[in-house]
């Protein structure tokens, strides 16, 4: 008797590629959002946050989506290795960059976003930062 349940092997096989593509597309959306954030956010730390979201969440979703599409194969194993490498390097790089900026004396902007004003402050802080160097 054929397995007619929702989770029959045929259904799972059909869902695999579909879910994988959906995951990869979601990851692409997160990456795009991260890129927009890098361009639009007011100061270094917020941009850093945005960039690291791209690196971790976006890359995770894309890689897991591709793994689902790839199935049980060497390709999927390599993608898993890439993911593990990403999980080690990307947060470390973000941490090192933010840490370096903090040590160099770049103050994060605190308080409410007021548009133009905070932008000018940011440029002043950057200029002060360059002078110090």
């Amino acid at each position: 008797m054929a397995d007619t349940s929702l989770f029959s092997p045929e259904n799972l096989e059909a869902a695999r590629v579909f879910v994988g593509s959906a995951l990869a597309l979601t990851g692409a959306v997160f990456s795009a959002a991260g890129s927009i954030g890098v361009l639009r956010f007011p100061d270094f730390y917020t941009r850093m946050h945005s960039a690291s979201v791209t690196d971790t969440l976006g890359a995770t979703l894309v890689l897991f989506g591709l793994m689902l599409i790839g199935g049980w194969s060497l390709v999927s194993f390599k993608l898993l290795c890439i993911w593990i490498f990403f999980m080690f390097t990307s947060p470390t790089a973000s941490n090192a960059a933010a840490n370096g900026a903090m040590k160099a004396g770049l103050e994060p902007f605190l308080g409410k976003w007021t548009g133009q004003k905070i932008k000018i402050e940011g440029q002043e802080a950057l200029r002060a930062q360059e002078d110090r160097e």
Binding site: F85, F88, T89, T92, N95, A96, N99, K103
Partner: peptide, 13 residues
């Protein structure tokens, strides 16, 4: 140890 995380992770990588 301001770069502790960097050191630990790179020691592994």
């Amino acid at each position: 140890d301001s770069h502790l995380i960097l050191r630990v992770v790179s020691k592994f990588l």
